[in-house]
């Protein structure tokens, strides 16, 4: 459905995207995660046709979206800014989207407004930030697009609405076999709903895996040795120290798990236990470094 081929983009002399490749199939929810400023929003804006790539192409159903923007009848992009339609009333937006998108479903749109209890007879500027974000998402799904691109979609939503909208996205994807590409910092959301995890680091795709594969290829352990962490262990390429308190080390093992656990055991640890692992642990281990990830 969506193929991002070798996309590169330089902005103000710095390479924001570096030969990015992504392939997404129908019926997929893909979570795009990465630290601030690594090029997530730029990538989504290139895919949506807002920015031109310096190199490479974005193909939707084998059609280049930059050369044939008409194909975007089946693609909608929801930006992280909620201000773009604020001067419109709900009715005006319905008219506009009905004129733009051939398959815009007005009845469905109003049913979603009812479902999420959004007022129908108001200007968008009177909505709260969360309501605006929700409204843009509803608008996007009502176009009956096959690919929906959401940039930080749940920012500003309260936990109840957030849970409802995530549930709604899962329902839509399973019913219509559409593809949703979400950029977010909320890893628990990706963990709950995404099928595919795309990690981006310094403009490059670090990994594209299913959530399950990601979890099985990592292991989080806590170890305590008599002295400090043995040099042999420290030098292993697939072991990251994600925390250290005194002689207590929290390690993340990436790949080759059984053999690595064996090596840890061979160094006679005072304690070696596996810890429950979240996507955030994988995120920090893969993309993190020392500083705090926002």
């Amino acid at each position: 459905m969506l193929r991002v081929n070798n996309i590169s983009k330089t902005i103000e002399g710095s390479q924001v995207l570096d030969h990015v490749n992504i392939t997404l199939e129908p019926g997929t929810i893909a979570g795009l995660v990465g630290r601030n400023g690594v090029g997530k929003s730029t990538l989504l804006r290139v895919i949506a046709g807002i920015l031109d790539p310096d190199e490479g192409q974005v193909l939707f159903n084998d059609t280049n979206i930059h050369q044939n923007p008409e194909i975007k009848q089946k693609i909608t992009y929801v930006p992280d800014s909620t201000e773009i339609l604020k001067s419109y009333s709900v009715k005006e937006i319905v008219k506009l989207y009905d004129a733009i998108y051939e398959d815009f479903d007005i009845v469905y749109f109003y049913s979603l407004l009812d479902r999420f209890k959004l007022p129908k007879n108001k200007k968008i500027r009177t909505y709260s930030k969360g309501m605006k974000a929700l409204f843009l998402m509803i608008l996007s799904f009502s176009t009956k697009s096959d690919l929906i691109i959401l940039d930080e979609p749940t920012n500003g939503l309260d936990p109840i609405v957030k849970r409802n909208i995530l549930q709604f996205i899962i329902e839509e994807v399973s019913e219509r076999q559409l593809c949703v590409l979400i950029s977010t910092h909320h890893l628990e959301e990706v963990e709950k709903m995404a099928d595919v995890l795309i990690m981006i680091k310094e403009g490059r795709i670090e990994s594209t895996t299913s959530i399950e594969d990601a979890k099985t290829s990592f292991r989080k352990v806590q170890v305590v040795y008599k002295h400090s962490l043995p040099e042999k262990i420290e030098q292993l390429n697939n072991v990251n120290i994600i925390n250290q308190t005194g002689r207590v080390y929290t390690l993340m093992i990436k790949g080759n798990i059984d053999a690595t656990l064996e090596k840890l055991n061979q160094e006679n640890p005072l304690l070696l236990e596996e810890l429950p692992m979240t996507l955030e642990d994988i995120f920090i281990s893969t993309l993190g470094g020392e500083s705090h990830v926002s």
């Binding site: 949506a48 923007p69 693609i75 773009i84």
Partner: peptide
Amino acid sequence: TTHATDLTFSLPFKR
């Protein structure tokens, strides 16, 4: 100036 290009340029129209 207002980010509205993000909407306009993502629409299915030639520039």
